[in-house]
Nucleic acid binder design. Sequence first.
DNA 1: CAGAATCCTTCTCGATACTG
DNA 2: CAGTATCGAGAAGGATTCTG
Lengths: 123, 123
Amino acid sequence: MVTTTSLAGNPYQQDCPTRRILDRIGDKWTVLIVGALGDEAVRFSELRRRVEGISQKMLTQTLRSLEDDGLVSRTVTAQVPVKVEYALTDVGQSLRAPLKALEDWSIEHLGQVLDARTAQQAA
Amino acid sequence: MVTTTSLAGNPYQQDCPTRRILDRIGDKWTVLIVGALGDEAVRFSELRRRVEGISQKMLTQTLRSLEDDGLVSRTVTAQVPVKVEYALTDVGQSLRAPLKALEDWSIEHLGQVLDARTAQQAA
DNA sequence: CAGAATCCTTCTCGATACTG
DNA sequence: CAGTATCGAGAAGGATTCTG
């Protein structure tokens, strides 16, 4: 029987683990929020200051998604005015390593990518 | 002068290297195509078979973007019918490592994320 | 302070039909 | 075989307004 030997099971599907995670972290704000949280708990307003250019809507929305996926915890302190702090969970923390790998690659190769891009536009 | 010490330069910007790369690889098909290419040259039609569910339009479009960014090379062999092969460039190859890191994390933690997600929907 | 709700624009992507 | 061109639906995200 002839099979594409190196492709047993055909791993290049839309619902493979990598793509499903990229669906979550590939949006406009997620990685920035994860970076802004780091290893400390941060208040909503402080988070909004740290993540440059984010709207209140998108900050809320992205934090909700991260919370739903168990990557971020939300702690409400009943005082006046109310205090809400967000922090990475253990799982959320563990995501920082692969993101760091991607960041390192980006820093090292973004220049080449941009050069290739502008060179292409010339043609 | 007062500065947010741990945030010198405010790294959490939309145009930071990581986000710019995620703008490229965070789309629906890029990582699947990179995976399907691996370390060999692959023809257009074969690529289309490997990447499950991709339309001809999106395959072409994503390959063009990857080519413009210098991550993929395109080789045309003039024969009848014409043969076009795509392969990862050196830069494209170097991207596989950080993507692998993300894949490993996804395989290890996707279950937890999905569990958290369904648990959240119950509430 | 930390949000919810609404409107509106832009971008992504899929489907379809045609070509050298 | 390997594309190009066009259309339209839906999602993502920004601006604005209002609230416990």
